[in-house]
Design a protein around this nucleic acid. Structure first.
Lengths: 129, 129
DNA sequence: CTTTTTGCAAAACCTTTGCACAACC
DNA sequence: GGTTGTGCAAAGGTTTTGCAAAAAG
């Protein structure tokens, strides 16, 4: 049950930390393979899951069917371009008040939080058409 | 390109309409199979996708890796129990203002809307422990 | 030496798709 | 009869998992 050091896990962690574009497991795999040519996709998934479980990464699901990973673990909102799928962090405070607002009159249980992503068209896609 | 009637599609539509628990394709399949024992999962998927495309259903993605379908097509928020996965509709007005609030100072593109779901623990799971 | 991690490959899972036949209009 | 929809089965894409060997402590 104790965590042992592994060079692969460290490389995976560092890669995600170095990026701000919320890479998928496959992107992590492609890149970490430059340093570890024999690393397997299974190892990448296992470590991303582990790092997310211990809170060093966040797994974000944006409805595109693929998991993205984010090195920023503090709660924040995301912007997703409907056209190209690019993901940006939003510098917009988490609306804690909506949780209690939504809870008012809700009889089905206790609301602990919410997940939101904003969608639209990114700068580049707006420029193109 | 014209839509032709099909008894299977009608049964699928009616089943989803009759439920307020946001069934998955598999649940629809299991149930419609009582009336059409030979219906295939492919047909269920094809029709759910078609009905969502023409606006008779909504496809909702709640981060559990499976698509859910909702007969209520007016925008509304959902509550998801983190423990058992049950989904409830929330009687809480859509926060249109947050879109423009989030857009303020955002340089990455144009925000058209947002997707939110609230999570927590449902009544039953709260009672259990 | 014991426990954890890896690489590989297979499997699991959800969803889509190609095709011949059936249903619809 | 022409077109759309179905059933079946196969394939697609993402993620998980079993297992023997390797690495870590």
């Amino acid at each position: 049950m104790t965590l042992k050091y592994s060079r692969q896990r460290e490389a995976i962690r560092e890669f995600v930390m170095s990026r701000h574009d919320h890479p998928t497991a496959d992107v992590v795999y492609m890149n970490v393979r430059r340093e570890f040519p024999n690393i397997s996709l299974g190892t990448v998934y296992r470590n991303l899951t582990l790092l997310a479980d211990i809170g060093q990464l966040t797994r974000i699901r944006l409805g595109d069917g693929v998991d993205h990973f984010d090195a920023i673990t503090e709660p924040h909102y995301h912007f997703v371009c409907k056209e190209c799928g690019v993901v940006y962090d939003l510098d917009f405070p988490i609306l804690d008040t909506v949780d209690s607002e939504a809870d008012t009159g809700f009889e089905g249980g206790r609301i602990d939080g919410h997940i939101t992503y904003f969608y639209g068209k990114c700068k580049d896609c707006l420029a193109e058409g």
